[in-house]
Amino acid sequence: MNCLWCDADIVPDTSWRNIILVSKPKNLCPSCTDQLTVLQGKRCVKCSRLSEKEMCPDCMHWERSLSQEDPLTWNYSVFSYNEAMKEMITRWKYRGDYCLGKAFEMEYRKAFKRNFSFLPKEAVAVPIPLSEERMHERGFNQSKMLASFLPLKRKDILTRIHGEKQSKKTRRQRVTAVNPFQMKGSINNPVILADDIYTTGTTLRHAATALKKHGCPAVYALTLIRG
């Protein structure tokens, strides 16, 4: 098997443990794996930003600025947004290398098992949708791929109005943006939103607001990266 990033041969681990347990083959070679940084240490309980304080300044601002209870219970992010990850995301998300997304499956699934085992069996994964125009441009929705890694039923209940790319917006533009999400129907299941990156939290809170207004009892998020 070859590394999905650098195409180097991946030598399988033939230890007795792996032979007996039949572990899933890795999609990145050790060198490429080492370039990615899994978030570790103290982090904000709301947004997963590395922080010595229980809640980071950004989330404290959200708490003060929201006129009602925060629709997003909390977010958990897996990786930091270092240079290696930025390059991988560019190739995966913007250049259409769909298979590269499989490189993140193992850590994404582990993060779910470690942090969301308390969820009831009726919980569902809801991917952050792309607009029809953006979907046509990219060819696939990276958030839907992430949702497929989770051992939950997927529910594509959100739609998105087309607008300027999030990556092109300033922080202020993101925070003050109009909610672009609409619902296809009601929902009474707890939800985990699947998305690739948490930057300001606006996208996830907009999605959570739409879900809550249509019956969702609780909304969490599992994002690949904390920007």
Rank of each mutant, 00 (worst) to 15 (best):
L28C: 06
R91C: 11
C59F: 05
E164F: 00
R109W: 14
M183F: 07
V126C: 10
F104K: 04
M1L: 05
P190E: 05
L158F: 02
R91S: 15
C32V: 00
L66C: 12
G41E: 12
M183V: 10
L72S: 13
L72N: 14
V126W: 12
L150Y: 08
L146S: 03
C32F: 02
V38P: 10
E63C: 03
L146K: 02
G101A: 05
F116P: 15
T200N: 13
L66A: 10
M85F: 14
Q182H: 12
T202D: 11
E83L: 13
Y108S: 00
L150C: 09
Q35M: 01
K121C: 14
F181T: 04
R64F: 13
T199Y: 04
P190I: 07
K53G: 09
S131A: 08
D13K: 05
C56P: 09
L72Y: 14
R171C: 00
A177Q: 15
S31K: 12
V191E: 04
C29H: 10
S167K: 11
H61I: 05
D9W: 09
K212H: 09
Y198F: 09
C29V: 02
M106G: 10
L146R: 04
K212P: 10
G215S: 08
G101L: 11
E87S: 15
M55D: 08
